[in-house]
């Protein structure tokens, strides 16, 4: 493993992933190197099948690489046992999914509490719901919430653990334009105000304008990385 700088938060070295989908072998990610610094807002851009979700899953420790290593604060995830990797996800990662993945049988508040119970020092559940603007909808079940509201619950659920890393997989993919911008704004806020590192995956190129760095992927490999010294305010994004 290459020596990392102090601010290196995440480092991937020659990470590759091959899936078997049905009877087909898919090279989802070719050998890839990447580093992410603490406090960065990184957007991974690419069309369907480019390997961006795979990359995100590997960073989040919900999937393991076929080859290579993924390090979080110098700790190699691929060397961790099941308990350690669970602890990593529990303490360090907050996830936001395209399809929200709320537990349909729990209310908004209970969905957030469901995750808060996992950590020793969670944020106050109602404060977090208030932060995402859903305090007044706290006792509603997912089926009673709009898509944007469900995604805000998902963000609250991710933030309640106070994770240093927030991973979002197509967070606006299932939302309308205005709601999508609100969600992106929320993510930007937690990045700036709480210093949480955010990695978001999207196929919407406009979202890249709000990031510190944009990583372009195609056919399972990184094609380019753009640094953005002047990220656009999410409210000004257009697509």
């Amino acid at each position: 493993m290459q020596p990392t700088s102090d601010s290196t938060f995440i480092q991937l070295e020659q990470v590759a992933k091959t899936y078997m989908i049905g009877e087909v072998s898919v090279h989802a990610l070719k050998p890839t190197d990447l580093t992410v610094d603490a406090g960065e807002f990184v957007v991974m851009l690419g069309p369907s099948g480019s390997g961006k979700t795979t990359l995100l899953n590997l960073i989040g420790g919900i999937d393991s690489p076929s080859t290579g290593s993924v390090c979080f604060r110098s700790a190699d995830l691929s060397q961790m046992n099941e308990d350690q990797i669970t602890e990593y996800r529990r303490a360090s990662v907050g996830f936001i999914f395209q399809f929200f993945n709320l537990i349909p049988t729990l209310t908004a508040r209970e969905n957030v509490e469901f995750v808060a119970e996992l950590v020793d020092d969670p944020a106050d559940v109602m404060s977090v719901l208030n932060e995402v603007g859903l305090a007044d909808r706290a006792d509603h079940f997912p089926s009673e919430l709009s898509g944007g509201e469900q995604q805000r619950v998902a963000i609250a659920r991710a933030l309640v653990k106070n994770p240093p890393l927030l991973l979002a997989d197509e967070p606006t993919g299932n939302l309308d334009y205005e709601t999508g911008k609100h969600i992106l704004n929320l993510m930007r806020q937690v990045n700036r105000t709480r210093g949480i590192t955010v990695i978001a995956v999207t196929h919407n190129s406009a979202v890249g304008d709000m990031s510190d760095r944009t990583i372009h992927l195609r056919s399972g490999e990184i094609t380019s990385i753009e640094t953005n010294p002047h990220p656009t305010d999410p409210e000004d994004l257009k697509w």
């Binding site: 989040g60 996800r89 996830f95 537990i103 950590v119 659920r157």
Partner: peptide
């Protein structure tokens, strides 16, 4: 499945 995936991804162990 999706719920299990979510539970596992947020840190619920096996």
């Amino acid at each position: 499945r999706a719920q299990i995936g979510f539970m596992r991804s947020v840190g619920y162990g096996r």
